[in-house]
Amino acid sequence: MNDDAVFRALADASRRRLLDRLHETSGQTLSELCEGLNMSRQAVTKHLVLLEAANLIATRRQGREKLHYLNPVPIQGIAERWISKFQQQQLAALSALKAALEKPD
């Protein structure tokens, strides 16, 4: 799984719309995902294949149905790449503050 595949998959409004719908309700069939969208079933299928290849969605068979789930792990990886070092500083600042406040006089 590389970041390029994730960014390419995200660089399309229709695919982001599909991810938004899975974010609202995870675990949908192709038919459910197509409902109310101005896209052909074939187009949705194509987008889903690309999203799955980028590991942004996971699928699971349940009986005869294939359910689609949002997989947020690659997005977490992208966020951490640039954000985590700032979070670390905040956490370090907070723990220093806690230590200072709790220090007996």
Binding site: S26, G27, Y69
Partner: peptide, 11 residues
């Protein structure tokens, strides 16, 4: 009825 989350990562 069921609530499910699936997480996938390649290591």
């Amino acid at each position: 009825a069921e609530s499910t989350f699936i997480y996938v990562t390649y290591i």
